[in-house]
Amino acid sequence: MDKGNMVPIVLFLCITLGITYVVRLLVNARLRIKMLQACSSKELVEAVVQSDSHRDQMTALRWGILTVTEAIAFGIIQAAGWTDINAGVVAALLGAFGLGSVLFFVLARRLS
């Protein structure tokens, strides 16, 4: 594939994902507003806010762990001197992602 064709394709994908993310945020915010307007229970409002906060913390933890394990995998690939994409490189990256997911699962169970 020509490198000149990659820029418009990547730009299109980034814009599409950005729009999708913004729409998702707006829909979730509108849903929360409607739900909180419908109920008058202070405890329910606090529970919703706490669950959102906990979910955001767990999401940050998950992506942090996955980013670190992928960075370690890229470091191993660089140290090994692998310059071509082959089965070993793909296996290292997938293995790092899997290891990070398992590590997150273990930590999330301990924190919950």
Rank of each mutant, 00 (worst) to 15 (best):
A29R: 13
G100V: 00
V10N: 04
P8R: 01
N28G: 03
T20F: 08
H54W: 07
E46M: 11
G18Q: 00
R62M: 11
V23G: 01
L31I: 08
A87G: 10
R30M: 09
Q50I: 03
R110K: 12
V27P: 00
V90T: 04
L11C: 10
F97W: 10
R30V: 11
A96Y: 01
I9M: 02
L66K: 02
G100T: 05
L111N: 08
H54E: 13
M1P: 02
I76A: 11
I76K: 03
T67P: 01
R30W: 13
R110W: 05
Q50S: 14
I33H: 12
K34Y: 06
I9L: 03
S41I: 06
V10Y: 10
S40T: 09
F97S: 08
F105A: 14
T69P: 03
D52W: 12
R62K: 11
D2S: 14
R109A: 14
L11N: 06
L61A: 09
L44P: 03
V7G: 08
V27K: 00
L31K: 13
W63L: 12
M1I: 01
K3Y: 00
A92R: 05
L61N: 08
V27N: 00
E70R: 07
I85H: 03
Q37D: 12
L36D: 08
S53N: 10
L26H: 00
K34S: 11
L44K: 07
V23P: 01
A80P: 01
V89T: 14
N86T: 09
V48F: 12
E43K: 13
S51M: 15
A96C: 02
L36T: 07
V102R: 03
L61V: 06
G4N: 07
V45M: 04
R24H: 01
A47V: 07
L13I: 14
L13Q: 02
I15M: 13
A47H: 05
S112R: 14
L13N: 06
V23Q: 00
G88R: 08
L107E: 04
M35L: 10
V48M: 15
I15R: 04
G64K: 00
G88C: 09
L25K: 02
A80V: 09
L111K: 15
E46V: 06
L44F: 10
